[in-house]
Computed example of a mutant assay.
Amino acid sequence: MAEALLELRDVRAGYGDAVVLDGVSFSVSENAGVALLGRNGVGKSTLIQTVMGFTQFLSGSILWRGREIQTVKPHLRARMGLGWVPQERDIFRSLTVEENLTVVARPGPWDVKKVYDLFPRLKERRENKGNQLSGGEQQMLAIGRTLMTNPAMLLLDEPLEGLAPIIVEELGDAIGRMVREAGMTLMLVEQHAEVTLGMTDEAIILERGRIVHQAASKDLLADHATLDRYIGLNIGD
């Protein structure tokens, strides 16, 4: 069996005295898309931030390509191939779209042309500064900029939050193509469960900092009872 790209073993982590993740274990294979689902406040964003090294790590292990990295600093984890797109987007607002992309570029298959192919809107706006973009365009730029670092795995924290339905559909399609066509390994936190399950291979549901359900995304999408129980979705009603 092939070695997991990322593996968490009995991870406990949080902020200060607060334990948010309590014994989380799972692995992510290369070229797979994994959805992290659950109601607000269950630890989804904390899990991604823990993988990147931004929380207080209490116990357990995080392995990247078989090597423990829980003591490695966040910027070094990024250099190792973990690409994080935070909720805040953090684009360079005073730089143009193209400058945002090229300033962080590292060698690899993702270049400006490939990002523009994925997000044609960015090509149209390439001379616009970051602060001249809509919320959806800023999110596309945040994802595109992280792709320009050529990560081995992309961590997306609620990329569709607060966006218009047409942009949700456009971004969701692009993210799905990253997994299916470009072979990008992906971990995705998102409230839009139906969209998320349609673009990933595996799904993990968190409740109170623990994994309470794990399944193939297509199976969970058909499991309305589980979705309603843990996420509050009445799909098909």
Rank of each mutant, 00 (worst) to 15 (best):
N234E: 12
P107H: 06
R210A: 15
G130P: 04
V195Q: 09
A105F: 00
A142K: 13
R145H: 14
F26V: 05
N40Y: 12
M153R: 02
T71Y: 01
T149W: 10
Q191N: 08
A216D: 09
V19G: 00
I211G: 12
K123I: 00
S61T: 13
T102Q: 06
G176W: 05
M187A: 02
M140V: 11
K113G: 07
E30K: 05
D173F: 10
T96L: 02
A2N: 11
A164H: 07
I211L: 13
F54Y: 15
A35L: 10
E30N: 00
V11G: 09
K114I: 07
T55S: 15
R229P: 00
S61N: 14
L47W: 01
Q139W: 04
L118P: 02
G183Y: 03
E137K: 10
T226W: 01
R145Y: 14
N234P: 01
L154P: 11
G198S: 14
M140Q: 15
S61F: 01
V85S: 13
E137H: 08
H213I: 03
L76P: 00
A174P: 06
L147Y: 13
Q214N: 06
A105R: 12
M178R: 06
I91K: 03
I211E: 04
E30R: 01
D90H: 04
I231F: 04
G198C: 10
R67F: 03
E207C: 12
T71S: 11
V104K: 08
S94I: 03
R77G: 10
A4T: 02
L188C: 08
G66P: 08
L220G: 06
Q87N: 13
L58S: 00
T226I: 15
M184I: 06
V72M: 15
V85D: 13
S217D: 02
A18Y: 03
R9E: 15
